[in-house]
Amino acid sequence: MIDSISDGVLPDNLLHALAKQGAISAPTTFCDTQFQPASLDLRLGDYAYRIRASFLPGAGRSVAQRLDESDLVLHKLNLRDGGVLETGCVYLVPLQESLALPELVNALANPKSSTGRIDVFVRVITDGATSFDRVRAGYHGPLWVEICPRTFSILVRPGDRLTQLRLKKGITPTLERHDLNLDLSHASLGPIIGYRARRHAPLLDLAKIGKHAPRDWFEPLTAHHGTLVLDPGEFYILASQPGLSIPEDIAAEMVATAEDLGEFRAHYAGFFDPGFGAKRGNDRGARGVLEVRGRDVPFVLEHNQPVARLIYEPLSAPPDAFYGENGSHYQGQGLKLSKLFEAWS
């Protein structure tokens, strides 16, 4: 099957086929909603290790070996009845999914949009890994996810989906690079041009979709003369100019940091599936919602400033469904918080 397809990002039908062949496996039945047009949602396992520092296992060593051989583990947390992951702490959780990839297939992980928009930093780790979020071609073994809530403590359970995996065959060519420009205009966005996270906010329960009052976690922002000053270490939700639309034969990724664009991290969650922004009756496309964190010094953002960069890659085959066809909280989006929150009022 894999030998006969073109190099590129694997769509939903090929992800289903790999799952049926055992190349992607789990002790529990897959949910159909895990399979996105060009990515697979990954589910948390039953427990979490609170660790004192992030780490990579390194070539020839497994994650489990590193945990057993070191004093990195502070305690083990059972997630079956819900577990609180606290702000500023680092946790390591086994994922339910494991891989036995064909030799021509590699993978890349990224946080889901709802994870990035609540300032939860997540990275996938494999056995023998020397880098985060990258799965080498032909990898056989378990998957782990490192979780670090930056601003809000979160309540999680087994099966929660904080991260996603994009599988690729061969060396996927980059078709195009495209900068996204920031929108700080009241004329297009209205009175609120962004949100800043509140410190010392209540606990966020990831099972309560649309049940959290956003004002308890965020404060609204207005721009003065089209500028906004980022404070170091603070977390912001901002929006790009409208017009983002991903063609149906393309998968896109927003790079987490483009070093030449400014003193800030511009995006945590980076996958855009084919068909994103192509909402019927909406010729303007969607906006890219930006999860922005200031770095070491205050930094002035200006309206229409480039703030993030997209790269485009081909699909290896057409998907069965495009983004938004099976329902999505973010299709055709404007400036929007995570799906955990009620509409702003």
Rank of each mutant, 00 (worst) to 15 (best):
I118M: 03
R280M: 05
T151S: 09
K279S: 15
D7P: 09
F276T: 03
V105P: 10
F30W: 14
R43L: 07
G277Y: 01
V145L: 04
T222F: 03
D216G: 04
M1F: 04
D32P: 00
P102A: 10
L15C: 05
Y236R: 05
P173G: 01
I51P: 14
P247F: 00
Q34W: 09
E103K: 15
D133C: 03
F272Y: 14
V84C: 07
I125F: 00
P298K: 04
T29H: 11
A278G: 04
V297N: 05
R80Y: 14
N326Q: 14
S240N: 00
H267R: 06
A137M: 02
N282E: 12
I147C: 01
F271C: 03
Y47N: 10
E325H: 10
F299K: 09
V292H: 02
D160I: 06
L203T: 03
Q305A: 03
D3K: 08
G262V: 05
L79Y: 09
K169R: 15
V93A: 10
T172C: 13
H225Q: 15
A17V: 02
H75Y: 12
R66C: 12
G277R: 00
L180A: 15
E219K: 09
V122P: 04
R293A: 13
V93I: 15
D296Y: 08
P202E: 04
K168V: 13
G88K: 15
R196L: 11
A107T: 00
E176C: 14
N304L: 06
V122D: 02
A269M: 05
P214K: 06
L244S: 02
N110E: 08
K112G: 01
V229C: 12
F121T: 02
E259T: 09
L315C: 08
L337P: 11
D3S: 14
I118Q: 00
G138L: 07
V229E: 15
A251C: 08
K208M: 15
G159H: 10
F30H: 10
L104E: 12
F35Q: 11
K279H: 11
R123H: 10
P11C: 08
L44V: 01
V120N: 11
T257R: 15
